[in-house]
Deep mutational scan, measured.
Amino acid sequence: SADYSSLTVVQLKDLLTKRNLSVGGLKNEWVQRLIKDDEES
């Protein structure tokens, strides 16, 4: 899986927004959300 934890907050928020995922919570929660989205898609 991609190394989301190395991305900036701005990059992570951009990815979350593009995938229609929530940008609520902490940075590590966003990373988990993106990883989960990868596994489900």
Rank of each mutant, 00 (worst) to 15 (best):
S1P: 13
S1A: 14
S1L: 14
S1C: 13
S1F: 13
S1Q: 13
S1H: 13
A2D: 12
A2Q: 14
A2T: 15
A2R: 13
A2C: 14
D3G: 06
D3M: 07
D3F: 10
D3P: 07
D3K: 09
D3W: 10
D3I: 08
Y4L: 04
Y4I: 03
Y4K: 03
Y4D: 04
S5Q: 12
S5D: 14
S5I: 10
S6N: 13
S6Q: 13
S6A: 11
S6R: 12
S6P: 00
S6L: 10
S6F: 07
S6I: 08
S6M: 09
S6K: 14
L7T: 03
L7S: 03
L7C: 12
L7Y: 03
L7H: 05
L7N: 04
L7I: 04
T8S: 15
T8I: 02
T8R: 01
T8Y: 00
T8W: 00
T8V: 05
T8F: 00
T8Q: 05
T8P: 07
V9D: 15
V9M: 13
V9E: 15
V9N: 12
V9Q: 12
V9H: 11
V9T: 13
V9K: 08
V9S: 14
V10H: 12
V10C: 14
V10N: 14
V10P: 13
V10K: 12
V10T: 14
V10A: 15
V10R: 09
Q11L: 05
Q11T: 05
Q11E: 14
Q11W: 00
Q11A: 09
Q11H: 04
Q11C: 05
L12C: 00
L12V: 04
L12E: 02
L12A: 01
L12D: 02
K13S: 06
K13I: 15
K13R: 12
K13V: 13
K13P: 01
K13D: 04
K13Q: 11
K13Y: 08
K13H: 10
D14A: 09
D14V: 07
D14Y: 03
D14T: 06
D14Q: 08
D14I: 08
L15Y: 04
L15D: 02
L15A: 06
L15I: 10
L15Q: 05
L15K: 03
L15G: 02
L16S: 02
L16Y: 00
L16E: 03
L16W: 00
L16K: 01
L16T: 04
T17W: 04
T17D: 09
T17C: 13
T17L: 15
T17H: 12
K18A: 11
K18E: 13
K18N: 09
R19Q: 05
R19W: 00
R19D: 05
R19K: 06
R19A: 04
N20S: 09
N20V: 01
N20D: 09
N20T: 01
N20E: 08
N20H: 11
N20F: 05
L21Y: 00
L21P: 02
L21W: 00
S22V: 07
S22A: 11
S22M: 06
S22K: 07
V23H: 14
V23C: 10
V23N: 08
V23D: 10
V23G: 07
G24F: 01
G24R: 08
G24A: 15
G24I: 14
G24V: 14
G24D: 15
G24N: 14
G24P: 04
G25W: 01
G25F: 02
G25C: 06
G25A: 03
G25P: 02
G25S: 03
G25E: 03
L26G: 15
L26P: 11
L26A: 14
L26M: 12
L26C: 14
L26V: 12
L26D: 15
L26Q: 14
K27P: 15
K27C: 10
K27A: 08
K27I: 11
K27M: 09
K27R: 08
N28V: 09
N28A: 11
N28W: 14
N28E: 15
N28M: 08
N28G: 11
N28L: 09
N28Y: 10
N28K: 07
N28D: 15
E29H: 07
E29A: 05
E29N: 06
E29I: 02
E29K: 02
W30N: 05
W30I: 10
W30P: 03
W30F: 08
V31S: 00
V31R: 00
V31G: 03
V31L: 11
V31P: 03
V31I: 15
Q32Y: 00
Q32H: 06
Q32F: 00
Q32L: 08
Q32A: 14
Q32C: 12
Q32K: 11
R33I: 07
R33K: 06
R33F: 01
R33T: 07
R33N: 06
R33A: 10
L34V: 02
L34E: 02
L34N: 00
L34P: 01
I35M: 12
I35T: 08
I35R: 08
I35P: 01
K36W: 10
K36V: 09
K36R: 12
K36Y: 08
K36N: 11
K36Q: 13
K36D: 13
D37Y: 15
D37M: 07
D37R: 04
D37K: 06
D37I: 03
D38V: 05
D38F: 06
D38Y: 05
E39A: 11
E39L: 13
E39I: 14
E39F: 12
E39Q: 12
E39T: 09
E39P: 02
E39M: 13
E39Y: 12
E39H: 11
E39C: 09
E39V: 10
E40R: 13
E40C: 11
E40I: 12
E40P: 06
E40G: 09
E40A: 13
S41H: 14
S41P: 09
S41V: 11
S41G: 11
S41L: 13
S41C: 10
S41R: 15
S41Q: 14
